[in-house]
Nucleic acid binder design. Structure first.
Lengths: 185, 185
DNA sequence: GATGTCATGTAACGTGTTACATGATTTA
DNA sequence: TAAATCATGTAACACGTTACATGACATC
């Protein structure tokens, strides 16, 4: 499927970038739904070059330090355009370790369960607040053709996802308190 | 981290099972937040056996067909109990290919974008309906100590997640229609 | 001169998917 | 007797993470 390939090509359509810059993009906004380490990115860029989807030229900053700035080719654009149009079936539901813990939570005392839930809740609230702060930068909805539109949509999606996760945790806490462990099986 | 290990141990606490039965569990309810193929499960069971977390005895159905029924050991229970108590930091946000497509959706015409969104919406609605049908089986909230309680919580979580995803898609459709591609950058 | 950022790469390992491979038992 | 289900395993490959490895440049 090579999703990383298309994530990189999509970024390079906006502007030519170095591997280092691509890695940074993945750790800022994109991190809300995609991520890759530089150890994955550099080999992928090599592969994309050998396939003719990208080309690079070397830039020198200072006296020695080299950076490869990659540009997407026509072939790369064509391939990306075909990919983004495909409507695919739903992915397998992503693995969620906390949900796995909750699935087995009958093995915990009520106190421990609620402690785990509260801890998780706090972390999601923190993340939600961070996301909301970023979202405040959008004073209006960007035009659907602007390259900030996608960013706006996924940021909104990330906020909704966090709010929803917190709502689920709150339900879990409520049910745990209503049905203390001493209830009959 | 070995999450699969704990997923298997957690199932074996409920009752002794064969590898085949474990695989089936993963493809029914657990599939809403966890999944593993039999090609992952059998080697993991072998490893758990060599580590002393589980033991098995061979059952024969019919004349020849052998099945290994695995039972969790005290060591396995102890290890699982320690694992479930750990409060961990949030996982990295799971990768979501559809969100990746939407991030780059300024490269699409409005029509194609809305087509993708509608298709995705339909699939989530179908899944939601399936989940709701399963949820109807719970006429009341199971006791917090019953082994159906975890199942109840994650099923409720899956329903909320699907409803929320649909709500996000609806927002995306709305914004796409409000801001047609012809708007000025 | 120390720390942080820029910049690129490889190696080892862990996890996950698809395909290959085999055969017994049950049910329609 | 054909198809579905029961039952177990391996191999090859794809994807992802952590660690190893190196060095330049900028700022305090």
């Amino acid at each position: 499927m090579r999703a990383l390939k298309y994530a990189i090509l999509g970024l390079l359509i906006k502007r030519p970038m170095t591997g280092y810059e691509i890695a940074k993009e993945f750790s800022y906004e994109l991190a809300e739904f995609w991520y890759a380490n530089h150890s994955q990115i550099y080999p992928e860029l090599k592969k994309l070059t050998s396939e003719g989807h990208v080309v690079f030229n070397i830039e020198i900053s200072g006296d020695i330090l080299e950076a490869k700035r990659y540009t997407i080719t026509d072939k790369g654009i064509k391939d990306f355009t075909q990919w983004i149009l495909k409507d695919e079936n739903l992915q397998r539901t992503p693995k969620d370790i906390f949900r796995l813990r909750m699935y087995f939570s009958n093995n915990l005392e009520v106190g421990s369960r609620i402690h785990l839930l509260e801890n998780q809740r706090l972390q999601h609230v923190n993340r939600l607040n961070t996301l909301k702060k970023i979202f405040e930068q959008y004073l209006e909805v960007p035009s659907a053709s602007s390259d900030r539109f996608g960013d706006f949509l996924v940021l909104r999606g990330a906020i909704m996802r966090e709010e929803n996760y917190i709502a689920w945790i709150d339900e879990c806490i409520m049910y745990s308190k209503e049905n203390p462990q001493t209830s009959p099986k």
